[in-house]
Amino acid sequence: MSTLVRSASLTNYAEVARAAGLDPLAFLANAELDPACLHNPDLLVPSEAVRDLLEASALACGMDNFGLRMAETRLLSNLGVVALVAREEPTVRRVVRALIRYKHLLNEAAYAKLDEAQGIAVIREELFFGHAGSSRQATELLVGVMFRILTFFLGPAWNPSRVCFAHPPPRDPVLHYRMFGYSVDFKQDFNGLVCTTRDMDAPNPLADPVMARYSRQLLEATAGSGSMGAVDSVRHTLLVLLPSGECSIDRVAQQLGVDRRTVHRRLMREGTTFSEVMNTVRRELAARYTEDHARPLTQVAELLGFSALSAFSRWYKQQFGEVAGQRRRAIRRT
């Protein structure tokens, strides 16, 4: 089933495209997206189409930081009604948690998680489309928007301790350094921001507890309770657990706070099984990681939760009908 994203995700697309010498309307047409997306931020459009639009635009103009250019001037207000809730939360931690809770109302393909330990806070952001294809531009847009939101509350001089991207570095990282500072790392195991728990503790001077309550009531009345379906919950949990190798249904159930039978039952109601969901997640990640020639296949196997390269190789050939190394060589020749 196709996932949807608010057309606000295309904020600044036309400006960046024109500055790069592209015709934004022509590229929208090629992606089968309505030009109204550029003017009505609340339209729901296929997230895959937006991803493909950004990748096609970046390729056409030779800008491998196209998505980050779109994020560079984003505002809190671009989040629509979710911004009303975030703006009234008392601390930055509560702001981030509100964004995570309502993330699916902004982009059904997006996943976010906040982990804190020993004074370090990690905001992990991932995209899952269910189909192969590069997500570099959409990922940098996603992380860039989170950064812009945090600077709204922490001040324009704030920089995270680290900014992590799973994809290789751009040809020219000047924009990344200008936006995030120099602590940007590529070819990492996740996409997201690393900061301190002190940053999360920072108070929000704009917060109004009464307005926060009313904003949440408004959001949940107009968009539902904010709960995720079983497939999305399992899928997002697997994105975190796969690199650790602890991706059994029992481990997933533990993370979700239920038993394995409950996970089975909920997935069956949505017409699928745990094995099918895990296989779908692995297929997309495998296609994405295999395209990255700088990432050894042994590391790809680990990121997908396989105990050995041989197990990954057998699975890959069964799924794609070819050897992973052959696929990588074929991509290099194109």
Rank of each mutant, 00 (worst) to 15 (best):
R282A: 04
T334V: 04
W315I: 00
M228W: 15
E140A: 10
N191H: 13
S313D: 02
L114Y: 11
R266F: 01
D23Y: 03
Y289V: 01
P205Y: 10
F153K: 15
G21R: 02
S47N: 05
D250Q: 08
R69I: 01
L206P: 00
A83R: 09
S275R: 12
V5Q: 07
L79D: 15
A83W: 03
F274V: 08
Q254N: 10
I100A: 09
Q318D: 11
L239Y: 10
A17L: 10
L142Q: 15
L28Y: 04
P243K: 04
R148D: 07
G271N: 06
G321V: 03
V194H: 10
N12C: 05
S134C: 10
A286S: 14
S225I: 13
T73H: 14
V263A: 08
T273F: 05
N204T: 11
L193D: 14
G226D: 14
F66E: 05
A157G: 01
L304H: 00
P160D: 11
A20G: 10
L38T: 13
G67L: 06
R329Q: 11
R124E: 15
R213A: 01
L304T: 00
M211A: 15
A202K: 05
R216S: 07
R266Q: 11
L79P: 09
T91A: 08
V96D: 13
R136H: 08
I249C: 06
Y111N: 12
S244G: 07
R171D: 09
L150E: 14
E270C: 02
A98Q: 14
V92H: 11
M179T: 15
V277I: 11
A117N: 12
I149C: 11
G144R: 03
H176A: 14
A286K: 02
G229M: 02
R266K: 12
A286V: 08
L114I: 06
I123E: 15
F128Q: 13
G62M: 02
E88W: 00
D185H: 13
F320G: 07
K113G: 09
L54S: 07
D172G: 04
I123M: 15
W315E: 00
G144K: 07
A49C: 01
L105N: 12
S307R: 01
R283A: 12
E32G: 00
R69D: 05
M200V: 12
V300N: 05
R93H: 13
R124I: 07
K187I: 05
L309D: 00
D185N: 12
A31M: 03
P169V: 08
F165L: 07
L304Q: 00
A294I: 05
T298F: 01
L285P: 04
G325N: 10
A83Q: 11
R328P: 05
A166V: 12
L68Y: 05
V281H: 09
S313Q: 03
L105I: 05
L150Y: 14
R288H: 07
L285N: 11
L127V: 05
D189G: 11
Q118V: 01
T280P: 00
G144H: 10
Y289S: 02
Q254K: 12
E220R: 13
A132W: 01
R69P: 03
L38Q: 14
A20Q: 07
C247R: 09
Q299Y: 00
A26D: 13
V184H: 14
T73L: 05
A330Y: 01
A207F: 04
A110K: 08
R74K: 11
R332T: 06
S227Y: 09
V163P: 12
V194L: 07
